[in-house]
């Protein structure tokens, strides 16, 4: 690196740098318009859902974006009772939490092993997980149903506990592997010199350092598990004791006349846990994204 000895040159460079900074910080109306426009695009569906949850069909179809004339919670109570959403939320929570735990318990050690494997086998295993991404979800439906029947687990939550982690393991392992690779090998070496075994290294070094990555995976998996519909419908079935809230919700769709206000009120109820989890984990997610940005 060459240092700048001439003060005049240094001043010029500083000025140039400040000039660049001030240019980049200058108010850019086009950027602001685009950002606000994008934010509006995201907010419109949410606004529509919220106001429609307080309306009847006539108001929804005839004045879709008008504010509701009353703020009665009848649609919410109707949705709650007619779709048995209470048990549905409990079932969804059970399925999501247990599947999440199983996924992380399997994915974290797998990612650690792949990240630290130096030989060809590690590469082959990583490619094996990557190949899992190529299987279209719908293609696995029939074999999965047959498997659940053969295991006597058809129309039970237990099969969802086992099946859902299998659907997200490839992406979870591959993403976590990248986070694990960012951990300096020297940390592991010094810990092992101090007598730590692999499990201790994983728990005390790798997991704390890769928490942002684990949080990212957890959020992505939470959204996948919570919003799962097709497999939950077919594998767990419609019984209120077993069905998830996403399967309960379409029970509000009638064959001849659907009350969309009630349906959208039910949809809003199902979204609440997603927002709560996001609020809890969003800082970790942002950390993970920033970590990636700094690296790049």
């Amino acid at each position: 690196m060459t240092s700048v000895r001439n003060p005049a040159v240094r001043t010029t460079r500083v000025r140039t740098s400040r000039s660049r900074n001030s240019r980049s910080n200058r108010f850019n109306p086009l950027a602001h318009v685009l950002v606000w426009f994008y934010a509006l695009l995201l907010l419109i569906p949410l606004y529509f859902m919220i106001i429609s949850a307080f309306k009847d069909n006539a108001d929804i179809f005839n004045s879709p974006f008008a504010f509701p004339t009353s703020l009665s919670f009848d649609n919410f109570t109707n949705a709650w009772t007619r779709a048995s959403m209470g048990p549905g939320l409990i079932n969804s929570a059970l399925v999501t939490v247990i599947a999440e735990i199983i996924t992380l318990v399997l994915a974290i050690p797998a990612a650690y092993a792949i990240a630290r494997a130096g030989g060809r086998i590690g590469g082959i295993v990583e490619k094996f997980f990557a190949a899992g991404l190529l299987i279209p979800g719908f293609a696995a439906l029939v074999p999965t149903v047959i498997l659940s029947i053969a295991l006597q687990l058809f129309h039970t939550r237990e099969f969802l506990y086992l099946f859902l982690p299998a659907t997200v393991l490839p992406l979870s392992v591959i993403l976590l592997t990248q986070f694990m690779r960012s951990v300096p090998a020297e940390l592991e070496e010094s810990a092992m010199m101090d007598g730590a075994n692999r499990l201790r290294v994983l728990i005390s070094i790798y997991i704390p350092i890769t928490i942002p990555g684990i949080a990212t995976i957890a959020i992505l998996n939470f959204l996948t598990f919570w919003n799962e519909y097709l497999y939950a419908l077919i594998l767990a079935g419609p019984d209120p004791d077993v069905r998830t809230v996403q399967v309960a919700l379409p029970g509000l769709v009638s064959q001849t006349y659907t009350q969309y206000g009630v349906l959208l009120a039910g949809a809003l109820i199902t979204m609440v846990p997603v927002y709560i989890v996001y609020i809890i984990l969003n800082r970790r997610l942002e950390d993970a994204l920033l970590q990636g940005a700094v690296k790049s």
Partner: peptide, 13 residues
């Protein structure tokens, strides 16, 4: 056990 439009699919599977 209530099912709306999904009833035929649920029943058949």
């Amino acid at each position: 056990v209530q099912a709306g439009e999904t009833l035929p699919d649920v029943y058949e599977t």
